[in-house]
């Protein structure tokens, strides 16, 4: 059963004005419980508009959004409750910190859920440790922290609500490789520990290929492609023609294929390319006679 699903979702900005712009055009996609999905597409393809529908921040102009198979805009459902269950981390979330202390900032979301003080404390501690923020930092002002720490605090504020689906809009933008790997592996860990579904919005095909089980590619207000990384990268030429990058290793494998090496052109990790090439060298597969 899917946790989040949208059906023919359409969204038009500035409807009826000269600035009318169709940001989503009949978009359908679903996410299963516990699934790790990456949402890819370039700027203006509709990614951010789409995710703002998934917790009811934007209301569809057409189509519907379902959480747990219930239409979130149905008279009987409560959009506010959906927002506690679908946690949305915006781009550069560190700019949204506002409380006096790190601990209070993390507690803001769960406090609005009406949790008791003990439960609240427990959740703040748990969320902070999930993102690797030391307990001694909880009493500090967010402004005393480094940029990378502030971002992790912002993510902890969402995690503390224990959402069943966690959506992150480019959580690694502007971070160095070490910071990027740390955040993504913490998110992966959160998901395996809690069973929460994760939707990662990213520009990086490399990150998408490495962490997600399924990719959804948007282009020009439509879902352009979706499938496992192997399925999506097997259509690398289409991706490139839509102006989307494919991982560098995939481009190497595509070129190797053209040069007559018997490698799967949809290979998207270095480990997998090494495995295939080693097997070829040892003559376990075709393409190299008399090996």
């Amino acid at each position: 059963m899917s946790i989040l699903r949208c059906e023919n979702l359409t969204h038009i900005y500035g409807k009826g004005t000269p600035f009318e712009h169709v940001a989503l055009d009949s978009v359908s996609f679903a996410m299963e419980r516990g699934e790790f999905v990456a949402l890819i597409g370039h700027t203006g393809s509709g990614k951010s508009t789409l995710i703002q529908h998934l917790n009811g921040l934007l209301k569809p102009d057409g189509g519907a959004v379902y959480f747990d198979e219930k239409n979130i805009w149905d008279e009987k459902s409560d959009v506010r409750k959906v927002r506690f269950k679908v946690g949305l981390v915006f781009q550069y979330p560190e700019y949204q910190l506002f409380e006096e202390t790190v601990g209070k900032d993390i507690a803001f979301g769960p406090k609005n859920m009406g949790l008791a003080e003990d439960e609240l404390k427990e959740r703040v501690r748990e969320a902070a440790s999930f993102v690797g923020i030391d307990e001694e930092l909880l009493e500090k002002s967010p402004f005393e922290l480094s940029g990378g720490q502030r971002r992790r605090v912002a993510i902890a504020g969402i995690i503390a609500m224990r959402p069943e689906a966690l959506i992150l809009d480019e959580p690694t933008a502007g971070l160095d490789p070490r910071g990027r790997d740390e955040i993504l592996s913490r998110i992966a860990e959160y998901r395996s520990n809690t069973g929460s579904a994760v939707l990662l919005v990213t520009h990086s095909m490399e990150d998408a290929a490495r962490y997600a089980e399924r990719l959804v590619v948007m282009n020009g207000a439509h879902v352009f492609m979706q499938g496992t990384p192997a399925e999506v990268f097997s259509r690398a030429e289409e991706l490139q023609s839509a102006g989307l990058a494919v991982p560098q290793i995939t481009r190497v494998c595509m070129r190797l294929r053209e040069l007559g090496v018997d490698i799967d052109p949809a290979t998207y990790t270095v480990e997998e390319a090494v495995r295939q090439l080693t097997r070829l060298k040892n003559g376990a597969a075709g393409g190299v006679p008399n090996a």
């Binding site: 160095d176 490789p177 070490r178 490399e206 991982p247 560098q248 290793i249 190497v252 270095v270 480990e271 390319a273 090494v274 090439l277 080693t278 060298k281």
Partner: peptide, 18 residues
Amino acid sequence: VGLAVPQTVELAYSLRQK
């Protein structure tokens, strides 16, 4: 020092190790 190398270099490096 926490820096990644391009995937092309990573591929060559891993293959050399094999």
